[in-house]
Amino acid sequence: MLFNIVVGLVIPWMVVLLHLYKKDKALVLLIGTFSSVIGFTVNELAIYYGFWTVAPFVEPNTVSTLPFNLGIYPVLPIYLIYFIKRHGRPHVFIPLMALVTTSLETILVMNGRVVYDNGWHTPHTFLSYLFPYILVYGYYAYLKKPNVLVELESYHGSREGRGEWGQQYKKAACNIVHTAKHLIRGKQALSFPLSFKFLYLVRTG
């Protein structure tokens, strides 16, 4: 399990945090979370139908895939979209990334850390990566079309955006303290809307 954690989770995210996160935070957050959901879905279905198992071979085997679902499976699509964003040519990068990922998994299969069953073979693995990558690119294209990704990047990267968010946090925090004092004294609290706004900012900021 230590191998899965280090290789599948720690190393990929160290690369992203040191290289890409400061360059494109919005891309990391939006593509990473969406890709992680896809990774969980594919692995859950594949293990349920017995197409593959991952070392250590414990029950439930989904525990063994957890570091990969949270690590390398979100990270590779992040870099896929990063390369497409910089160079274009999605018809080249998508199958290329699927081929690279399939090659990495083939190494794990040869080392006995991944075992295929129920008629699953390497070509199926390639397709199991190709279609999710296409789905991730479609998600990125959907965000790009109404400029959601561009606006989010520019807003968080601007001095005005950072200053405005800082003022909202400070104002909402002061209102939470004020509300708590009223509750302690048994008085009616009138600052709940701003308190909830602060909790919303914490969860989405």
Rank of each mutant, 00 (worst) to 15 (best):
L2D: 00
N4F: 00
I5W: 05
G8F: 12
M14Q: 11
V16E: 13
H19C: 01
Y21D: 00
K22T: 03
D24C: 04
V28F: 10
G32T: 15
F34S: 09
G39T: 09
N43M: 03
L45M: 05
F51E: 13
W52R: 07
A55M: 11
A55R: 04
F57C: 13
E59A: 13
N61A: 03
V63Y: 15
L66Y: 11
P67L: 09
F68K: 00
L70P: 05
I72C: 09
Y73A: 02
V75W: 02
L76D: 01
I81S: 15
F83Q: 10
K85Y: 15
K85Q: 11
R86F: 10
P90N: 04
H91C: 02
H91E: 14
F93S: 09
F93G: 09
P95L: 08
L96V: 15
M97N: 03
A98I: 08
L99H: 03
S103L: 06
L104G: 12
E105Q: 13
T106C: 05
M110D: 06
N111D: 15
V115N: 12
Y116D: 04
D117N: 14
W120G: 08
H121C: 02
P123A: 13
H124N: 06
T125P: 01
F126E: 09
L130N: 10
F131Q: 08
F131T: 15
I134R: 03
L135N: 04
L135G: 00
G138Y: 00
Y139F: 15
Y142V: 11
V148L: 14
V148D: 04
V148G: 06
L149T: 09
V150T: 10
V150C: 02
E151A: 14
L152C: 12
Y155H: 03
H156T: 13
R159E: 14
G161N: 08
G161V: 02
R162H: 06
R162N: 10
Q168F: 00
K170N: 09
A172T: 13
H178V: 00
K181R: 09
I184F: 12
G186E: 01
G186C: 03
Q188D: 10
Q188S: 14
A189C: 13
S191M: 01
S191Q: 08
P193N: 01
F196W: 11
F198D: 04
F198W: 11
V202G: 03
R203H: 05
T204Y: 07
G205W: 12
G205Q: 05
G205I: 03
